[in-house]
């Protein structure tokens, strides 16, 4: 049954079907794909954002320590905590950037992200409701764009690829649209 899975008749006959573990050895493997990295300037933008937030927090802690007498003795501890947090966030962004990437197959798009907490997402092209290319003011300075893929599965099931060049984003978008047009040409069965 492993090999002829593709040739099986649709569900009508399956009520009598009594095997259940699917051995999908011959199916395309999502673990085999090679992920394409994103633009390094994307990492720098993220690091700059972390840095700016850090400066604000640092300023806040310092001002508070010199204004409020009770907080003063804890200034050093607070400083260490803030610095440690900043170091951790910087490291997390650098590590995550190395892992972050997307991959296109002929039927779906994959995206992975994370360092300690890793995640892999896959959306088949046929399930994409619409695509959006965004470019914010900071993106424009660094010549970056982001591609958002929306599904009907709610916001947590969407993919948001930051750190593409505008050209890449447009290419991926048109690739997905042309693939979807190709897929939709086939007959659609409306049973069930």
């Amino acid at each position: 049954m492993v090999n002829n899975m593709e040739n099986q008749e649709p569900i009508a006959e399956e009520a009598t079907f009594h095997n259940d573990q699917v051995q999908s050895l011959n199916l395309p493997k999502m673990e085999d794909v090679v992920y394409e990295p994103l633009q390094p300037s994307h990492m720098y933008v993220n690091l700059i954002v972390v840095g700016i937030i850090f400066l604000f927090v640092l300023a806040g802690v310092t001002v508070l320590s010199f204004m409020v007498e009770e907080v003063k003795p804890y200034f050093l501890i607070a400083l260490v905590v803030v610095l440690a947090l900043f170091g951790f966030l910087t490291l997390a962004e650098i590590k995550a950037f190395k892992f972050r990437g997307y991959a296109l197959r002929s039927h779906d798009i994959l995206y992975r992200d994370g360092w300690l907490w890793k995640s892999w997402m896959v959306i088949p092209f046929t399930r994409i409701q619409h695509l959006e290319i965004n470019q914010g003011p900071i993106d424009r300075i660094f010549d970056l764009a982001s591609l958002q893929l929306f599904t009907a599965g709610g916001s947590s099931s969407d993919i948001d690829i930051d750190g593409l060049t505008p050209g890449q984003a447009a290419d991926i978008k048109s690739f997905i649209m042309s693939k979807n047009a190709e897929i939709n040409e086939g007959d659609v069965d409306t049973t069930l």
């Binding site: 907490w117 599904t151 099931s157």
Partner: peptide
């Protein structure tokens, strides 16, 4: 299914 996600913590 609309999309799927695999996640892993440390």
């Amino acid at each position: 299914t609309q999309s799927l996600k695999i996640s892993q913590n440390p």
